[in-house]
Design a binder for these strands. Structure first.
Lengths: 127, 127
DNA sequence: CTAGAACCTGACGTTGACGTCAGAGGCAAG
DNA sequence: CTTGCCTCTGACGTCAACGTCAGGTTCTAG
């Protein structure tokens, strides 16, 4: 019941990111860290989930600044008209990104169909 | 029937990208350009579509190199086992990216629900 | 023929999310 | 006490897809 705090290396391992990334997140105001007397960071276990959330948002194309804007309204659950507008805007952006990706995938499917279908007379290079 | 070729500025306008981007695409081997005697680039009209395809692939997260690898098998419709594997791999990547985005969107939706629903007792800051 | 747009080739600048290295301190084991 | 791993703070390096600037040429409208 004592070791409830994680050191940076453990958190990095558990969350699947680098130590550098965690320091970077702190620098960007995305992840607060407690400090031991000697200056070492320590994190509570829920930080693992938080880091994974951050990663998810990064991979969705959000920038550090955007994430920093949105996370407080996850933490404190403070909801202002602006923060809600921001959330809606980012949701919309993700939607657009998804539809764009689907279009790109369809294009790629078309190319794949061409390259796998002998019907266009160009595919029998390998035989 | 003579002006069937576009100059770089026209192509840029029509395709909705910058002149610099077009030169960059050429540099990366994504877009061939004819040259006039004085060295000016000229493009056939289908280049517009090609540039838009390139853009779409970029926005799907493919790198220049990957696009350069895939475009020849669009052009010449040359299909090797490797190119097909590559196509499939990229398609899979896009799929993963889409599901990741959907997850992120769901997370965001959860946050939005929290911030808009007075049911958690934190939302009435604005009233 | 001449001004001004459009084009050319380098080549350096930018941005974001880290990687990586240097030099110095901290901590548990033997 | 020392060995060895972990951590710390700078601070510079990276990579991709362009932006931007410089200095010079070319095309086109009047």
């Amino acid at each position: 019941m004592v070791g409830v705090t994680l050191r940076i290396g453990e958190l990095a391992t558990r969350a699947g990111v680098s130590v550098r990334a965690l320091r970077y997140y702190e620098e960007q105001g995305l992840l607060a860290a407690g400090r031991s007397g000697s200056g070492q960071r320590h994190y509570p276990e829920p930080a693992v989930d938080r880091v994974q959330l951050i990663q998810m948002l990064y991979s969705a194309g959000l920038s550090s600044k955007t994430i920093a804007d949105l996370l407080p309204c996850v933490d404190a659950q403070v909801s202002t008209p602006e923060s809600r507008a921001r959330l809606a805007a980012e949701r919309a952006r993700i939607d657009e990104q998804i539809t764009g990706l689907i279009r790109a995938r369809d294009q790629l499917d078309a190319v794949i169909a061409l390259s796998e279908n002998p019907a266009n007379g160009c595919t029998r290079i390998h035989d």
